Simulated assay, not measured.
Amino acid sequence: MNKQQIYTLVSAVILACSVISSGYSADMVTSISKIKLGERLFNDKHLSADGATSCATCHIPEKAFADGLRVAKGISGQLGTRNTPTLLNVNHATSLFWDGRRATLEEQAQDPFINPREQGLKDHEAIVKAVQADTGYQSAFKQVFGASSSVITLAHITQALAAFERSLIAVDAPYDDYVRTHDTHVISESARRGMELFQGRARCVSCHLMEAPVATFTDNQFHSLGIGYRKIEPRLAEITTHLANNRSQPLDHQIISDAEISELGRFAVTLNPRDIAKFRTPSLRNVALTAPYMHDGSIATLEEAVDIEVYYRGIELNRPLILTPQERTDLVTFLQALTSPYVLKKQAP
């Protein structure tokens, strides 16, 4: 068995375990036909108001399923307020979006279709009708769900999309090779020093977990680095009150259209003052390919992101956390070792 076959097998096992643990039967979610159907829906630009926007418009396979933009761009070039996160290894996420406002991929998949700044459809009935009327989709949904065109539902559509997204596994980085084999030729000496810093004095691992059997590099929790907070601080009482009094408007519409509400982070979901300006910890896998960084895309480079994270750790410790230029370089080199070679070559994981 060659290296690629081993990675394929390991990825399949990880996916099956995550599927079972999340309550879905393995034969349903890992069905190749369902994944292929979800991939077609993911790339279908006809399922948008302008006929030119799809899920893949923001989650571009060649860009590690991010888009390389500061904030996402939807129909008619409209800009949102948040940076597009990668979908690679999203099967490990316990909540979705930067503020965790959706618990499952099936729930998450519903929102972009009808968001005015994303795919812009009038309602969910529009996507269901479009799928029902497509002969290619009719046969595919019949094969996967046993559903005739007249009984294809939104739930069928989001299940297929979620199946495809759960298949986007990339846990074959040089770091993984090193952990598995302890071969010092797999990653550089600088990367090994960076890993020691990451796990030790730099305290990165306090949020970006490296637990067995496969390190996710996230705690799936919500933290504040203060990014963007100063922009809303003078009007914080007014902004939070406005949000609390306008719960009838869809939350995702408010977040993606209003930059001030977007900066409230997790608070927009919970209305708990402790959650103001807190955002979900992103995974660091393939992070070298997903610039710019932070929830608002305001940090251009990985080096700058490391500086901000180190500064934040110092605040937590109530003392400055000082890194030498070499240590900073070592940390960045380690983060680069979290890149899947298949993603780096712009191939599907």
Rank of each mutant, 00 (worst) to 15 (best):
G77L: 02
F42V: 04
S188C: 03
Q132C: 07
I276T: 03
V131W: 13
R285K: 02
T86K: 01
T218D: 03
Q347V: 03
G200I: 06
F198G: 04
G23H: 01
R117N: 15
V10S: 01
H253L: 09
F222V: 03
Y342H: 09
D99P: 04
P61C: 05
R230E: 12
I227H: 02
A66Q: 03
A130Y: 09
H59A: 03
R180E: 15
V214K: 10
E165M: 01
P282Q: 01
A130E: 14
I35L: 10
D219R: 05
K122Q: 15
V310I: 13
M28C: 00
P174L: 02
Q119P: 05
F164Y: 15
V131N: 06
A66W: 02
G74T: 04
L243H: 06
F65R: 03
A162P: 04
A12H: 13
E125A: 14
N246D: 08
L335S: 06
F217N: 08
C58Q: 02
Q78K: 04
Y312N: 02
E309N: 08
I315H: 00
I6K: 15
R235Y: 14
E263L: 14
Q5R: 13
V214M: 11
W98C: 05
S298F: 01
D177M: 09
N2A: 03
Q132F: 13
E125R: 14
L335P: 02
Q221W: 06
A26H: 05
E39G: 06
I6A: 15
L87Y: 08
K36H: 12
I315G: 00
L225R: 05
E327D: 06
P250N: 07
G265V: 09
G194R: 03
I75G: 00
A348Q: 12
T270P: 02
A215C: 07
